[in-house]
Amino acid sequence: MAAARTEQSERDVRQGFNVTTYLIRRILYAIPILIGVNLITFALFFFVNSPDDMARLALGGKRVTEEAVERWKRDKGYDKPHFFNAQEQGHARFTNTIFFSKSASMFVFDFGVSDDGRDIGTEIRTRMWPSLAIAVPTFLVGLAFYITFALILAFFRATYVDVSGVVACVVAMSISSLFYIIGGQYLISKLWHLVPISGFDYGVDALKFLVLPVAIGIVSSIGANTRWYRTIFIEEINKDYVRTARAKGLSEARILFRHVLHNAMIPILTGVVVIIPSLFLGSLIMESFFSIPGLGSYTIEAINNQDYSVVRAMVFLGSVLYIIGLILTDIAYTLVDPRVRLD
């Protein structure tokens, strides 16, 4: 017994070592990916906008002089060459450029200040909470709801419940999310006066503002998600182990919620875990219609304002979160299926 325990312990240590090695390797892989993403963002941004354009927009449409444009560029560090500074010597040829000066600090998560002087890190820290306040309940409650609904449809497969459910899902998928938002605001807030149409507050006061956007967020995705989960469950439900479970006399609910759900976790996790980090980034339309002060519109505003400092920070953050999501997915596979090893 003791020997078996020791063997188990050694196996755990070995696996833990493997996971650590794997994580280090993935983090090292991430560095060139992030540099590449930065490079592409930089190239795309400055392909469309020149520093002169940025200066003119920042200074406003009226009475902008060439001198003011030059002063703005000098002050914001956009008067340097893009990638290579021929006037410098040594490594300064590369470091005294717009690309390097705007990118290097991000690798230690120092996002600096936006072109209009705001601290980007503070903005992100402030705005991610309202985004999460919408996204997390929508994600969790939605996930539980979609899976439950899909399991019910799978349980009633090939009956009127299943057919009606699938038809309802297709109809729900065909409707624009804007319709749900405007319709929800019209019915719930305007006609029935049950919750505020839009707005946000912090703490407990936030609840009355969150009910409607969360409910709409769940309902608007019900069609696509339920159909997807239903397909996974139907495929799983036809496997031999389900037939065996039935033969053993297990209740259908137990088969579905315990065995089928467990074995369907790999495809579910593939789609779900990867989006968890991106919950921080919020939803543009939802936040816009409900006046939620989240991160959803931050990048769009920055693109419209030609604020490269914010754009590169948000793209970098998005890339980091996506990489984290992929790593979490891989780790989640090992939790769901012991046969998967992170070697």
């Binding site: 188990q8 696996q15 969790l140 409650v141 539980a144 439950t148 315990r258 759900l261 467990h262």
Partner: peptide, 26 residues
């Protein structure tokens, strides 16, 4: 990893067992 897996299994059971209740709770 074993601890993590156990935690996952517990979470999974709790989630699957109470999934329907979520909607009602909301």
């Amino acid at each position: 990893m074993t601890v993590l897996r156990r935690a996952f299994l517990v979470t999974h059971r709790v989630l699957s067992g109470t999934a329907i209740l979520f909607g009602t709770a909301v």
